[in-house]
């Protein structure tokens, strides 16, 4: 059986909200290391995935691997019944056809129980090669949300040009054109300066509009703004976003979710006709 106790319902709510418009239904793969998920949208353009590590839960038990077929619209409805600061217990028996949720108020004065029916889903897992990207951009997630919103006012796609000087996002459309250039800011790249203490991947020191750029090769990539805007629904889960890109391959957009895991999207690029 699976039994996982999560201290903040808001994490689960946020993850489901940031995936449900891209994926209708998918398997949650549960093992003793945690809960993970991977699924493409119907047009096979974007892949959404997340990982919640067992260590990130207050208690976690999974006796054998389970694949739980979940419809996101159902899950979203159930999770709307939980308050953000509720404790959530997720429970599934082996070979069960339902997934159980218990929501406990922090002061333990209210306990709600819900269940959703599970689905049989033919899981098609894509094998994504482990790859080094030529460019890794890290910026505040709220700034990334604003950038995608702003670009969408003008165009349907955005071109990301990453070079030594910085990274430029540009778009054009019927009413005109626009671009935003972020220069590499060292304020979020001080891990090598010997200041120490800060954990890797922390957002410490990042200014609201700062952007750190690690570059091996210049990268130029055109991407659909419709999908990028969908990805920004994960922004409330994380202070920053990491965009990893190489020329002519899908971009990876990752939001770290506290210490528990991450939500990660892949988006196929626009290619020349």
């Amino acid at each position: 059986m699976l039994e996982a106790r999560l201290l903040q319902a808001s994490i689960l709510k946020g993850i489901v909200e940031s995936v449900k418009d891209l994926v209708r239904e998918a398997n949650f793969d549960c093992s003793d290391s945690g809960i993970s998920f991977q699924a493409m949208d119907e047009s096979n353009v974007a892949l959404s995935s997340f990982l919640l590590r067992a260590e990130g839960f207050e208690t976690y038990r999974c006796d054998r691997n389970l694949s739980l077929g979940v419809r996101f619209s159902s899950l979203s409805k159930i999770l709307k019944c939980a308050n953000n600061d509720d404790i959530v217990v997720i429970r599934a028996e082996d070979d069960a056809d339902v997934l159980n949720f218990v929501f406990e108020s922090p002061d333990e004065s209210k306990i709600s129980e819900y269940q959703i029916k599970l689905l049989d889903i033919d899981g098609e897992h894509l094998s994504i090669p482990e790859q080094e990207f030529d460019c890794v951009i890290k910026m505040s997630s709220s700034e990334f949300s604003k950038l995608c919103r702003d670009m969408t006012l003008l165009g349907q796609t955005v071109v990301i040009d990453a070079a030594k000087e910085g990274v430029k996002f540009s778009t054009y459309g019927d009413i005109g054109a626009g671009s935003v250039l972020y220069k590499h800011s060292s304020s979020i790249d001080d891990s090598s300066s010997g200041s120490g203490g800060k954990g890797r991947g922390g957002s410490g020191g990042m200014s609201a509009r700062g952007c750190s750029i690690e570059l091996r090769e210049p990268v130029s990539l055109e991407l659909s703004l419709k999908y990028l805007n969908n990805f920004t629904k994960a922004a409330p889960l994380s202070d920053y976003v990491v965009i990893s890109a190489s020329n002519e391959i899908p971009v990876m957009v990752q939001f770290d979710v506290g210490d528990i895991g991450y939500i990660r999207y892949y988006l196929a690029p626009q290619i020349k006709d």
């Binding site: 493409m40 047009s43 096979n44 353009v45 974007a46 892949l47 098609e124 897992h125 894509l126 094998s127 994504i128 090669p129 796609t157 055109e222 659909s224 391959i249 899908p250 892949y266 196929a268 690029p269 626009q270 290619i271 020349k272 006709d273």
Partner: peptide
């Protein structure tokens, strides 16, 4: 002019 590619052309199904 560009067009949208799909992930299938980059990632394989095992």
């Amino acid at each position: 002019k560009t067009q949208q590619s799909t992930l299938m052309s980059f990632f394989g199904t095992p």
